[in-house]
Amino acid sequence: MEIESGKTAELEPTVTLARLYEKQGFLNKALEIYRELIALEPERDDLRQALKGLEKRLGENTGDSSKLRAAKILSELELWKEAISKRKKMLHPGPEKEKKILVIYGNCRNSGTGQEQSLFAHVSFEEIEKEIRATARELGMKADTFQSGDEEKLAEQIRDAGDSYDVLIIDPGAYTYTSVLIRDALLKVSAPVIEVHVSNINRQGAFGKKPLITGAVTAQLAGFGKETYTMAVHAAANMSGEETRLQCK
């Protein structure tokens, strides 16, 4: 097998390739290959011995031992530098991207179930938002919130969320049963969506209607009162953008 000079970049560095270069007289090319291999596997003594022997041959050919020694020192320093850099990356990986979630809820105070209306008669949205944000911070996330009783504004907010958020949490209130607009907006969201309700809407007789929103979300939490929101935030911390979306048929 014969190798053309200048083709090193196209070939994967291996001991066999280095020996072929050395055999055919391309000593500098062989030297480069050995140095690359040692950078990848600095613990291999056989590679270092091969490199040392090759450097000796090059020194004899050039007759310039001082330059060879300098080149050897620089080579060793580069190898140590690469090994230290790899070790640092393993021990101290870069910071992970902060996960962002968006919590959306409709006007549950006036249009939700009896239990929801009772809850929001005693608990303000400001209190709930404070708990949501505090829980998100504890889990290393950032939470934004949006509240409106307007169906079009809710759907618009969902569409505007786009790819800006990792997970969406929504309490659509009474729109759970009536809003095709919100359902269609949710189906176009690529991020996982968690539907939440402070009351158990699945209990027989809760509304007597089939939910429209449920078929367009990834998961659902219901029936835990105001804690439903913080439970959803905990669930969001364990979800990723690769979660499978349930598609409404």
Rank of each mutant, 00 (worst) to 15 (best):
D166R: 04
D166Q: 12
V167H: 01
L168M: 08
I169P: 08
D171M: 09
D171E: 15
D171T: 10
P172L: 10
G173Y: 01
Y175L: 14
Y175W: 11
T176W: 01
T176Y: 01
Y177E: 12
Y177L: 14
T178V: 11
T178P: 05
S179G: 07
S179M: 09
S179Y: 09
V180N: 13
V180W: 14
L181P: 00
I182W: 03
I182K: 08
I182Q: 07
R183V: 15
D184L: 06
A185M: 01
A185W: 02
L187M: 14
L187W: 01
K188L: 13
V189C: 14
V189K: 12
V189Q: 15
S190V: 11
S190L: 07
S190C: 06
S190P: 06
A191E: 06
P192E: 14
V193S: 11
V193H: 02
V193Y: 02
I194W: 10
E195P: 01
V196E: 08
S199P: 11
S199N: 14
S199E: 06
N200G: 08
N200A: 12
N200D: 15
I201E: 06
R203H: 09
Q204H: 10
Q204F: 13
G205R: 08
G205F: 10
G205T: 11
A206K: 10
A206Q: 08
F207C: 01
F207D: 00
F207P: 00
P211H: 07
L212V: 06
I213D: 00
T214E: 03
G215C: 06
A216Q: 02
A216V: 02
T218V: 07
T218I: 01
A219M: 12
Q220G: 14
L221A: 05
A222G: 10
A222Q: 14
A222V: 15
G223I: 08
F224N: 13
F224R: 11
F224C: 06
G225M: 11
K226L: 07
K226R: 13
T228Q: 03
T228I: 10
Y229T: 07
T230Y: 07
M231F: 11
V233N: 02
V233H: 05
V233L: 03
H234C: 13
H234T: 10
A236D: 09
A236R: 10
